[in-house]
């Protein structure tokens, strides 16, 4: 596999304000790489540096092996970009907008644009000012895909979309990957990243905390578990099981946090009459807690 994006100690400060600090990131060809972190963590800063909208304070970034500053034009030629809250020219129709951007890219195959529009059920004859947010997002995705770029850089592409359109978005991004393209996708929602990405980089307060395969991320994620029993139970029964912490019993119900496999605790619980079992999807915060350690902070 070859490296599509590589950042080396990429650091960006806005005056004294932190953007990102010593970011070392590698995105491989053909993968969907999730860039996960809460708002303000530095995801957009990183992406805007890759596209040369802003310049690093320190460090460097290469895309396709090209320098993000010196070779920006070549990089942008081969990249499709879309951002969450995108604004388009309000005085154009969607078709005019796409034609304009197509020309700036040196021409795109219009039939392919129409094909994309049909799949997204996007009416290109509408003036952009009359489009809902979701419909504008669709135009944004079309312009990112229409020149069949090798690399997609998507900054929270589906935030605020209704679930149906979101699913179509996901399909198109996955298809691009299956086509051999690469995608860097930033998000602050874990399920989205779980669903789409092969690997995930977690960024918090400007620093890359970890890069994981989605599978192992889930494995290591903390999971909150509630088991209701038909009989009174004590905490001691479950104490000391591997990966289990924050044990608490209330009204015959056991609450706990489990890291990794649920197997030990399920086996232990199976010896007692179980009425109900609720396993909560690990939230992004809980995933973070895995890397920040300390169940104490978790309780706050």
């Amino acid at each position: 596999m070859s490296v599509m994006i590589r950042t080396e100690n990429l650091t960006k400060f806005y005056g004294k304000n932190r953007g990102v600090i010593d970011l070392n990131l590698e995105v491989q060809r053909g993968e969907i790489f999730g860039f996960l972190g809460p708002n303000g963590a530095g995801k957009t800063t990183t992406i805007r540096t890759l596209l040369d909208f802003i310049r690093p304070t320190r460090g460097s970034a290469t895309i396709f092996g090209l320098d993000s500053r010196r070779d920006s034009l070549e990089i942008r030629k081969r990249t499709g970009y879309m951002l969450a809250d995108l604004t388009l020219y309000r005085n154009m129709t969607a078709a005019e907008f796409l034609r304009y951007f197509g020309h700036l890219r040196g021409g795109v195959e219009w039939r392919f644009v129409q094909e994309l529009a049909e799949r997204l059920e996007s009416d290109l004859s509408q003036p952009i000012r009359a489009l809902s947010r979701g419909n504008r997002q669709k135009i944004g995705l079309i312009q990112a895909l229409m020149h069949r770029p090798e690399l997609l850089i998507l900054d929270e592409p589906s935030s605020g979309l209704d679930p149906l359109i979101q699913r179509e978005f996901y399909n198109m991004i996955t298809e691009a990957r299956d086509d051999g393209r690469t995608a860097l996708l930033s998000s602050h929602v874990l399920p989205e990243v779980e669903r789409l990405c092969d690997r995930v980089g977690i960024i918090r307060e400007g620093r890359l905390i970890t890069v994981e395969h989605v599978a192992s991320l889930k494995e290591r994620a903390l999971r909150r578990l509630e088991i209701r029993f038909a009989v009174p139970v004590t905490e001691e029964v479950f104490a000391g099981l591997p990966g289990v912490s924050d044990l608490r019993v209330e009204n015959n119900t056991l609450h706990c946090t489990v890291m990794g496999s649920l197997d030990p605790i399920i086996k232990a619980a199976a010896r007692l009459p179980v009425v109900d079992l609720i396993s909560h999807q690990p939230s992004l915060e809980e995933v973070f807690m895995t890397y920040y350690g300390g169940g104490d902070e978790h309780a706050k």
């Binding site: 942008r76 970009y81 809250d85 951007f101 700036l104």
Partner: peptide, 14 residues
């Protein structure tokens, strides 16, 4: 200010 410049400059235009 409106945010179209980012998108414009994501095209290969200096």
């Amino acid at each position: 200010e409106r945010g179209t410049l980012d998108l414009l400059l994501s095209n290969p235009i200096s």
